[in-house]
Design a protein around this nucleic acid. Structure first.
Length: 119
DNA sequence: CCATTGACATCGA
DNA sequence: TTCGATGCCAATG
């Protein structure tokens, strides 16, 4: 197992931050969730705050933050970039996980994951 | 402590 | 459909 993803830095992170990361890890491989859904899962009414947390995510791809997309089904951003090669890499990662992504960079709704009682 | 920003979301023109 | 404005919450300066 990769300990690099361990929340040892919890002292450097706020409770809100690890909540977001935890929810992110809850997304199964090959699935994607929207910022809003993730925010709702942590009982947060602000998807923006989630985006901030992921942006400041010190655990980059270690935490499946790349499985979080916008409600518009767009890739959103990655590694602090809303566009550019970073987002391209994110798209590639999703494709590697088997997530359907349209050439326009659109996530196929069928792969959307809901933080329901499913697991 | 106040002001500004941000990997979003939603509504209106 | 595309563009612009507003709201929300947290982090940072």
């Amino acid at each position: 197992m990769i300990e690099t993803t361990d929340f040892e830095d919890s002292a450097l992170l706020s409770a809100f931050q690890r909540r977001v990361y935890a929810a992110c890890c809850r997304i199964p491989r090959g699935r994607v969730a929207t910022y809003a859904a993730l925010a709702a899962s942590i009982d947060c009414a602000s998807p923006r705050a989630v985006g901030q947390a992921l942006k400041r995510n010190p655990f980059a791809p270690d935490v499946p933050c790349h499985r979080v997309v916008a409600s518009d089904l767009s890739l959103g951003g990655f590694m602090g970039r809303r566009d550019g090669p970073e987002v391209l890499r994110k798209k590639r990662l999703l494709l590697e996980e088997g997530v359907g992504v349209d050439p326009q960079g659109r996530i196929v709704p069928e792969y959307l994951w809901s933080f329901k009682g499913d697991e």
